[in-house]
Nucleic acid binder design. Sequence first.
DNA 1: CACTTGACCTGTCCGC
DNA 2: TGCGGACAGGTCAAGT
Length: 299
Amino acid sequence: MLYTKGMPELPEVETIRIGLAKFLPGLVIADTWHDWQKSFPNAPADVARFMVNAKIIHVRRRAKVLIIELSSDYSLVIHLKMTGQLVFRGKKEFGAGHPSKSLVGDLPDKSTRVVLDFTDGSKLFFNDQRKFGWVRLLPGLEVPEIDFFKKVGPEPLEDDFTVDKFIERLEIRKNSPIKVVLLDQSVLAGVGNIYADESLFAAKIHPSTSVKDVSRLKLVSLHKNLREILNLSIKKGGSTDRNYVDAKGKKGSYLSFTQVFRKQGQPCPRCGAVIDKIRVAGRGTHICPRCQRPPATMK
DNA sequence: CACTTGACCTGTCCGC
DNA sequence: TGCGGACAGGTCAAGT
């Protein structure tokens, strides 16, 4: 395969949700299969009772998590983590030599962990090379009660996510480096490494700066840029760094729009300085050393 | 409580 | 060509 790894963040998960929402509602689950218990830990008896013969009602997203609501009042909750993919194939897309434009080849393949078979012959494949992701069947009423949802922060693209709300959330961890805070899902939902680096570059903030040391003007810029970047990426179908694909197995194009992410060694599009790759809180971090000046407390 | 490290996994890439 | 190790990076758990 030419593609390798991926990292679904809010725009990628939202792109998958949009795709699945076109295909899944109305389909009835006929059978399920999995090859890795941790990818789908539910007891077979519950699967038989609440999943088989259930109809898909709706596909939702919260943070980086997908929620597929079933007619049984149970939901499938899915976290793709780093390398998870959800690829839908209609019945006609299985024949040998089918001219699929999908980046993913014949399915199932060696990274397929879970398969849902629908009564019309279509299938949904959950692929996950690294086995970090998972699918869980839960009573719909219990979904908001899982630990992750109880503590996850607000959605940054909601209309009511104002500058003041953004700053209020960031100040929960005002002494921490701002990149660490952006990545903290309990502060706000859905931001991962790509969009943290891109939005901090756009707002000209060094990722190691403590929240309390970033001017209000720059936080206003960060709020605006983060939302614009997330929206643009959704419009472009997400970022395919390595193995992210949408519900039809196609790549997103946003990565060709990134300014600094994976651009180390190349000139900054704004000032021409050479983009650097550093580590912040143990994560690969891309900056323009001229546009994003380090805080005074650093050398 | 805040912060860091390790665990979960597989595959790629780089240097020797 | 093979082999060890770093790296990829979302989240939770455990340790400091």
